[in-house]
Design a protein around this nucleic acid. Structure first.
Length: 616
DNA sequence: AGCACGCCGACT
DNA sequence: GTCGGCGTGCTC
């Protein structure tokens, strides 16, 4: 039987597949999973063959122009995975395929230099994947456990994907396993697309069976995949910020289901979503208990007047002095960069803001510049008020740089260092280190005697249902860096995150967190889909959001709930106003079906961009 | 997404 | 008249 018509998908937000005629010269070679070049909307584009038919409802079919690979790039399992991603995240199948493919294969250039040693596998498993959560309080025991597990898998001829939250960690991980296996690495960014392609083929051909890499490494075409490790599962970088907004944890589960492999999550404070998943029957928790967690002292700051007294409480100062005397190190956690965080005019009240993001500008002493913490914007500190031309500009607010100067003044005998996301490396030598969240990228080998959480309450201001879990994770990770003691300064000592930390019980935290989520029907007890709108003119974006809201509530099935349109957490970013509408429900299929149907016949106007974010 | 078509306002 | 902004439809 000769193949006459090919069904082809493309990497655009249009659902196909599209039918193309197959010329005689191609019909013998064309196969499902192959990259092809097809004319599409008067341009030539990359397409992916997903099937064949005998007839088409379209009269004049355009032809497949060429086949780009000798052998299929995508096997059945990959087609199934990309299809599942498209369904779950509401993108087209073609878009999912394009995110799967390495950069070098996303274009219509033929790749003839490489032939694939193996045919794609065809077996399809459907059982629920085996999942294990390694919850490790020690930061050390996990490596022993992982070495054993990975060694066992590799010895049996299986393949391993080891996901890390950022590319910088790959070297550290490779080092942990260097005596077990010559490891392959998926690097992103710095690797040239040519090298990345070579490596992709080596992985596909089974020459590399152990792959370590960031989020996108979940797509590494590892042969006989037996184990996926998601290291630091709670890390936010596992969620992609662009469409499709996939989460590596979810893709790992999808892949495990299709390929019948195991998923191993490693964390010292996982997401509530994962805790819930693992708590179900048949899943395993491996608790690696620390002999002794460092004590946590919560200092109630209610009676401290921030205008009169130093931001470091007397109990914290006392611990710092003790630590200094013993030659120990202190980490002061201050999650705010810069020196001053706000500059305003004392005459007219004008506050210096980023024009593109509407956020207060931070004064960076190190650069002598005003910077926006959301976009790259930078400018000089004006001499007079831009609004009233008066010379009454005053700067207030405290960032790490200011705390650094204050601490250096109070402890002249100490070496004071600072770290934030644009400091190059950790200071080699310090007695007191003032650091933002970015310091946790070194948490694997950062060890101090005392940790001071300076402004706990500042972290509570995030209006996000996951903020409690993130705080719990943050405290847990900081605490693991402390050998001696952790001091937390707060005006809300009865916060349940702090109470469960003091109880030394993560199970208590997750029980309470999950109860709260259940009460108000939030993930993991419901699916959440955000319809996100962004555009240049606020009134237009707002209008559109309301228009969509009306359509979403008009013939709404009882199974979904639609929230009022509201500004995004960052209401304005890089000159675009952002609104979102949250849709909730027990069934993701029902939500997606409903939302996609409403958006389908909605006309986007005035260049408003509308995107879907599943499990935002 | 990205591009052409077509409908209305303002202007060499 | 016609130039061009933007809303609309379409891609096998």
């Amino acid at each position: 039987m000769t193949k006459r018509i090919a069904q082809v998908i493309v990497g655009l937000p249009v659902e196909g597949p599209f039918d193309y005629s197959i010329g005689n010269e191609l019909s013998g070679r064309i196969a499902v999973g192959q990259r092809v070049c097809v004319p599409f909307n008067r341009r030539n584009r990359l397409g992916m063959v997903v099937g064949f038919k005998k007839t088409s409802p379209f009269k004049e079919l355009k032809p497949v122009l060429s086949i780009l690979d000798k052998d299929p790039s995508l096997g059945d399992q990959t087609l199934a995975l990309t299809r599942a991603i498209a369904d779950h995240y509401g993108c087209s199948w073609g878009e999912a395929v394009e995110t799967y493919l390495p950069e070098a294969l996303r274009h219509t250039r033929a790749v003839n230099e490489y032939t694939f040693a193996s045919k794609p596998m065809t077996s399809q498993k459907t059982a629920s994947p085996a999942c294990t959560l390694v919850i490790d309080e020690t930061q050390k025991e996990r490596w022993v456990y992982l070495q054993q597990r990975i060694k066992g898998v590799l010895e049996k001829g299986g393949g391993v994907i080891f996901l890390v939250p950022e590319a910088a960690l790959t070297a550290f991980v490779i080092n942990q396993f260097k005596h077990i296996q010559p490891a392959g690495v998926v690097l992103d960014g710095k690797t040239s697309s040519k090298d990345a392609l070579l490596r992709w083929h080596d992985i596909r051909d089974g020459k590399i069976r152990f792959v370590v890499g960031p989020r996108s490494a979940i797509f590494a075409p590892v042969k006989n995949l037996a184990l996926i490790v998601v290291y630091d599962e709670e890390n936010r970088s596992y969620k992609q910020e662009q469409t499709p907004h996939y989460h590596a944890r979810e893709v790992a589960l999808m892949r495990a289901k299709i390929e019948g492999c195991e998923v191993l999550f490693v964390s010292s404070a996982p997401t509530a979503e994962l805790w819930h998943l693992i708590s179900r029957k048949g899943m395993t928790k491996v608790a690696l208990k620390a002999k002794e967690m460092c004590p946590v002292q919560v200092v109630d700051m209610s009676n401290y007047n921030p205008r009169r007294s130093f931001i470091l409480s007397i109990p914290l100062q006392h611990e710092m002095e003790k630590t200094l005397q013993n030659g120990g190190k202190t980490l002061l956690f201050m999650n705010r960069r810069g020196f001053f965080t706000r500059t305003h005019c004392n005459q007219c009240g004008f506050t210096l803001r980023c024009e593109r993001c509407d956020a207060n500008m931070t004064y960076l002493y190190s650069k002598k510049k005003m910077v926006c913490r959301h976009c790259q914007a930078e400018n000089n500190l004006p001499k007079v008020c831009p609004q009233c031309q008066g010379s009454y500009l005053r700067s207030t607010g405290r960032g790490g740089e200011k705390l650094e100067s204050e601490v250096a003044r109070v402890y002249p005998q100490a070496v004071v260092g600072r770290y934030d996301k644009d400091t190059g490396a950790l200071p080699a030598k310090f007695d007191i280190l003032i650091a933002t969240q970015a310091v946790l990228r070194f948490k694997e080998d950062l060890s101090v005697d005392l940790v001071g959480f300076v402004q706990f309450d500042a972290e509570l201001s995030h209006l996000d249902f996951r903020s409690a879990q993130r705080l719990f994770t943050l405290i847990t990770q900081l605490r693991q860096c402390a050998r001696g003691k952790m001091v937390i300064q707060t005006r809300m000592p009865d916060n349940y995150v702090l109470l469960s930390v003091k109880k030394n019980s993560y199970t208590a935290f997750y029980r309470q967190e999950l109860n709260l989520r259940k009460e108000v029907s939030l993930p993991p007890y419901a699916y959440l889909v955000s319809v996100c709108l962004r555009g240049r003119k606020e009134d237009v974006v707002f209008q559109q959001a309301h228009d969509i809201f009306e359509r979403l509530t008009k013939n709404k099935p009882a199974s979904v709930a639609v929230g009022d349109p509201r500004p995004d957490v960052l209401p304005k970013l890089r000159d675009q106003y952002r609104y979102l509408i949250e849709v909730k429900g027990k069934s993701l299929e029902k939500i997606m079906h409903y939302v996609k149907n409403v958006l389908k016949d909605f006309r986007r106007k005035h260049n408003t961009i509308i995107t879907l974010d599943v499990d935002p």
